[in-house]
Design a protein around this nucleic acid. Structure first.
Length: 382
RNA sequence: GUGGGUAUAGCGCAGUUGGCUAGCGCGCCAGAUUGUGGCUCUGGAGGUCAUGGGUUCAAUUCCCAUUAUCCACC
């Protein structure tokens, strides 16, 4: 399923085969939580943005419109008209994200935090407060209905700052859940690739032990989860470096929810193959643009009369047709087009960055590329 | 020309029956955002309260004059 082509130090260049075609690794998945890229980009349009894989979310789609509805409409590929690979997240992250802070801030919706039991998790819907139960079996069945090519195990994404005891117990449960996920996939006779998720907070030894345990299950791929959730950046890379040697070399490795262009380069350098992040689209909607020279805040006055494209060396359709001055204006006038054009550019930038990384690995020049670009790409243009 | 009103941050406005560091919205600047509950959140800069004089312990506030501006009338 996964074929390693070549490597440059720890950085790996490979091909991952799925029911909807091959994926060149390393790659970045474009996040379409509710079966739509936020910012108004349709799935067919992603093909023009060098996107290889779309990521959708189990929890959101289960609540609305319902995974049975999507199944009846032919699954996510037909539903969104995206005929390339799709990965679905398990809903495990929502145990984390719905649990923190209570959600009182801007949404105005005060939900009950999820309750975690051995059987699974009781959520209350962020749409109408309705009580929802999801465990490993439910998550696998939902993802089966959605028709994803790659499905993620149902795990608990542990919040930063939890005690050793909490993390140890949580990780043990995540392992038990993973075994149930695997069994349910067999029962469903699903052809999708099930990925296990490593947890363990920032405790190296718990991480390593957990990784060793789940590696024995011989799954098609493995993810590192529970990072970039508030811990220090040094901790994140420390954990990756600790866990990576225990991740099977012949399986794809996925760092969940990461990250900035710099984070991605640094993680590829440490042996990671797959990424996803809301950053290119969320930041685009807020006026933060990723370019080959670093980050620019397009809303700043300095771009008012700037007739250059967002990124002068970018090949995206937005950079071919629109100026910084125009896009700044769209933000100031609160036009939806601002978020759309910025999202198109940022996604293209991320996908093109991955393409560049793949080429650099093939040419054994990735280390030099990293030296030159890692810092620069995540710094604000002055 | 006469009568009346107004003058407070780049713009639009509050406010003070005279008394702490003069506020708000927009704009501007900066930061944040990492398996999306966010067209979001946090912070910052910027005022001789039109000008000159007077009363008072104390004036952006009260009084007088001047200037600008708006409205009405001749």
């Amino acid at each position: 399923m996964y074929k390693l082509i070549t490597s440059d130090s720890k950085a790996r260049r490979g091909v991952l085969a799925t029911a909807h075609g091959e994926i060149q690794t390393p790659f970045f998945m474009n996040v379409a939580t509710a079966a739509a890229i936020k910012g108004g980009i349709s799935a067919p349009e992603l093909s023009d943005l060098k996107c290889q894989v779309m990521l959708c979310n189990t929890y959101h789609l289960h609540i609305r419109p319902g995974d049975d509805v999507i199944r009846d409409l032919g699954g996510l590929h037909a539903f969104t008209n995206w005929n390339k690979p799709i990965l679905t997240d398990s809903g495990g992250f929502q145990v984390f994200s719905l649990g923190r802070a209570g959600g009182t801030e801007s949404s105005g919706y005060v939900g009950k935090p999820p309750i975690i039991k051995e059987s699974g998790v009781f959520f209350s819907s962020h749409i109408d407060g309705k009580k929802i139960f999801m465990g490993p079996e439910e998550s696998m069945r939902i993802q089966y209905n959605l028709g994803a090519d790659i499905v993620m195990a149902f795990d608990e994404c542990i919040p930063d700052g939890q005690s050793r005891v909490y993390v140890e117990n949580s990780v043990k449960r995540t392992t038990r859940w993973l075994i149930r996920c695997q069994e349910e996939m067999l029962r469903l006779e699903s052809a999708a690739l099930l990925f296990g998720i490593n947890q363990g907070g920032v405790y190296n030894d718990i991480r390593v032990k957990h990784m060793q345990e789940i590696a024995e299950l011989n799954l098609p791929g493995y993810a590192i989860g529970g990072l970039a959730v508030g811990e220090a950046k040094d901790d994140m890379f420390r954990v990756i470096e600790a866990v990576e040697p225990y991740m099977p070399t012949e399986k794809p490795r996925y760092l969940m929810g990461v990250g900035t262009p710099s984070d991605i380069i640094e993680a590829v350098f440490r042996g990671i193959d797959m990424f996803d992040c809301v950053m290119p689209t969320r930041n685009a909607r807020h006026g933060t643009i990723f370019t080959s020279e670093g980050i620019l805040h397009i809303k700043n006055k300095r771009y008012e009369r700037d007739d250059k494209p967002l990124d002068e060396v970018c090949g995206c359709p937005v950079c071919a047709q629109h100026s910084r001055g125009y896009i700044r204006h769209l933000f100031k006038a609160q036009e939806y087009l601002a978020g759309r054009l910025s999202s198109i550019h940022n996604l293209y930038f991320y996908n093109a960055l991955m393409e560049k990384i793949r080429t650099e690995i093939e040419n054994s020049t990735f280390t030099a590329f990293r030296e030159e670009n890692s810092l620069k790409l995540s710094e604000l243009i002055r």
